[in-house]
């Protein structure tokens, strides 16, 4: 495995309309079309994300199955503007939740924005995970300072 760019951001926080939004950002040494395809083509998604099946058009509904975590979700494509902007809303199915007993199902919005970064082959992918209603606070806590805080207090 080659070395990863050091500009990955895993979970910086902002809040919008009382919901927590987590920003996940990374840069990929490729073209915007290639990155877009890897985020939207089921064959490529299957290799890094999970099985995605269904109506992959704006307004269309689909199912995903993440084998590594045994999580099944249903989702809807809310926005699709190739090759820059994709927004999907998904939710773990009740059956999958009963199997895994993880976090109770909630609506998660993943918004991917692809932007060129300086030289034209470097790109930034932004994935915003928002959840609505009662679990908003969970995401609000993906803040690196709290890891340090918790570690400092445990000593």
């Amino acid at each position: 495995m080659t070395s990863r760019p050091s500009n990955r951001i895993l979970g910086s926080l902002r809040s919008a309309d009382s919901a927590g939004v987590v920003r996940i950002e990374d840069r990929f040494d490729t073209t915007v079309d290639d990155l877009w395809e890897s985020l939207t083509d089921p064959t490529r998604l299957a290799r890094w994300f999970g099985e995605v099946q269904g109506d992959l058009r704006p307004g269309g509904e689909y199912r995903t199955y993440l084998a590594a975590d045994d999580i099944e979700s249903t989702g809807r494509v809310e926005a699709c503007e190739p090759p820059r902007h994709l927004r999907v809303r998904s939710r773990e199915t009740d059956e999958s939740y009963r199997r895994g007993r993880g976090v109770p199902p909630f609506d998660a919005i993943i918004e991917a924005t692809l932007t060129s970064d300086g030289d034209c082959e470097r790109l930034a992918a932004h994935l915003d995970g928002t959840n609505t209603v009662d679990v908003e606070a969970r995401w609000a806590e993906l803040v690196p300072p709290y890891q340090e805080l918790a570690a400092a207090i445990e000593r």
Binding site: M1, T2, R4, R8, L10, I24, D26, F28, D29, T30, D34, L35, E37, S38, R44, R47, W48, F49, A125
Partner: peptide, 11 residues
């Protein structure tokens, strides 16, 4: 993200 990098490299 690691898996996505691997997929991009593969492409």
């Amino acid at each position: 993200l690691d898996a996505l990098h691997t997929e991009i490299e593969r492409g």
